[in-house]
Amino acid sequence: MEIGAGQPARYDAVTIFLHWVIALLVLFMIGLGLYMDHIPVNDPMPLHQLHKSVGIVTMLLIVVRVIWRLTHKAPALPKDMLPAQRMAIGGMEGILYLFQIFLPATGWLMVSSMAMPIVLFGLVSWPLIPLPQSVMDSGTLAEVMPDIHNWLAWVFGGFIALHVLAALYHRFIKKDQIVDRILPRHGAGR
């Protein structure tokens, strides 16, 4: 069912759940990362492990979300939406998915290049990415990865801001039902 013909077409419950859980985890990770950047390196080891643990869990949830998205069609957009707007929505969705995959992957590569252990929530060891000894010996990857990971986080934050601004625009200025497609349902009457 297309938006504009009665109730809006909605994402399925699994997509809605994954969207909001991952959104909260990503915001937590960005906040924790910003905090960790402003405290002495010798203090945050428990915070680094928490950041790595939540990052790995988030990455796994994102893999589930991508697989789910590839096997479950998104609800239709409004009939009157311009082709350029449709392309912008699809492009933004693709960019957000890429960042959600690449950001935790660069974090994993970063700690692997530094041979730093990953212990998920202090309970389970997570394997490091196997790297050639020549890469480990040169130290170049370990030197550049923190900057790459940090830079990607800032760019991702910018795209998240654009995504939120677009949602607010549709909700409060355009007053269409685009945002309703991903909002959790409240009450039995909806």
Rank of each mutant, 00 (worst) to 15 (best):
M145W: 03
L18F: 13
L32T: 14
H51Y: 10
V155D: 13
R171S: 14
F121N: 03
T106S: 15
G4F: 08
Q100A: 11
M1D: 12
W20R: 07
L34K: 12
N42T: 02
R181M: 14
L162Y: 04
L131E: 08
G90Q: 06
F159D: 04
I182V: 14
E2T: 13
V66F: 09
G122M: 09
A105Y: 08
S113H: 06
L109Q: 03
A167I: 07
D176I: 11
R69S: 14
R65K: 12
G31A: 10
V66M: 05
M87C: 02
I30A: 15
V63M: 12
L96Y: 00
D180R: 11
I16Q: 07
L32G: 09
A188Y: 02
A153S: 15
R65E: 05
G158S: 06
F99H: 01
I22M: 14
F28Y: 14
K73W: 02
V63Q: 05
A166Y: 06
A115Q: 15
R86A: 10
I101A: 10
Q7P: 00
T140A: 14
H19A: 01
P75H: 07
I30D: 05
L120V: 15
G31M: 08
I3G: 09
L60Q: 01
S134N: 10
F159W: 08
R69P: 04
A142C: 07
W20T: 09
T106N: 07
D147N: 11
L60W: 05
L25S: 11
L25G: 10
G4P: 10
W154N: 13
I22T: 12
F159K: 01
G158D: 07
A105F: 15
L103K: 01
S113C: 03
H170N: 11
H19F: 07
P127S: 02
P75K: 09
R69A: 14
I62H: 03
F159E: 03
V57T: 13
M114Y: 06
M45H: 12
H48E: 08
L152R: 07
W151F: 15
